[in-house]
Design a protein around this nucleic acid. Structure first.
Lengths: 142, 142
DNA sequence: TCGTGATATGTTATATTATCACAATTCGTG
DNA sequence: CACGAATTGTGATAATATAACATATCACGA
């Protein structure tokens, strides 16, 4: 099993074999994936049985390094877009499962400041909004 | 198995036996409960094996009628406080699991309007914020 | 280069949350 | 009362996640 320096991760973070495979897969897919989807997608690449634990461990690491983010409402994981240093919010379509990230807008930052003022210490994790995207609204008006 | 008219539900909605038991339990507990916690708490009352399916069905119904809300990030369900017609947001403490609801504040409503203006049709469900409550911050500064 | 502690990985088992599908019972209305 | 709709009972399975033990690999200092 080779150890390779990753070309994709910021600040030259070294990723071991498995972790790199998982991360690159997530970057390629460009969508939110459940752990089991990752397992299924990885299987052809690795040519060996993939235990869930393998993937969860990799994800734990990638989460810790903030290379990926977990969408806690849908139990999916997604590689952070490279141009987005702070995923303040995301919109999750219930129909097509598309996920759209964006940085915190002013009202959301205001909201977070209000919450902080109550003494509640917020985590750094995107605020998740659920609904139906414009495309699916069109598709489902028939 | 008796059919009883519920005294607690708004607009005289009739709840069947199981559904009433689940709903009343949730109201009594006044905290967010996982389905399995509900099962464990119900067992003494019902005196029969409780299948998860029973509870999930009841929850599905109660969710549909908007008597309870699901905290999707923590897979828990909570009876809506009676004085809160619109649970706009909730704060979830990662340490003690306390959940605090409140109506949408102005910035959050603003945020929702911005999102709606993009064409994304938001669901009616609370926005969940994660962090550490003031109490747990005190307890954990030792 | 070797040894060792730290880290990563392999493996088995289990926990937690949720849904599917079929059957039986109860409810409500004509 | 009959019948269709709704509710419930039951067994099985799916999806997500973690615990625990063992082994292998990596990195660093001597």
């Amino acid at each position: 099993m080779q150890t390779a320096t990753t070309e994709q991760a910021p600040t030259e973070l070294k990723l071991s074999g498995n972790r790199k495979a998982v991360y690159m897969l997530m970057q390629q897919q460009q969508r939110a994936l459940s752990a089991y989807e990752i397992i299924d997608l990885l299987r052809p690449q690795i040519g060996r049985i993939i235990h869930p634990m393998l993937v969860y461990r990799c994800l734990d690491f990638l989460l810790e390094k903030q290379l990926v983010v977990k969408l806690v409402s849908v139990n999916k994981f997604v590689a952070l877009p490279n141009d987005l240093t702070e995923p303040g919010q995301c919109l999750i379509c219930e129909i097509c499962q598309a996920v759209t990230f964006s940085a915190s807008s002013n009202p959301l930052q205001q909201q977070k400041r209000k919450i902080a003022a109550t003494g509640f210490k917020l985590n750094q994790q995107p605020v998740e909004f659920h609904g139906i995207c414009a495309s699916c609204q069109k598709d489902h008006t028939e």
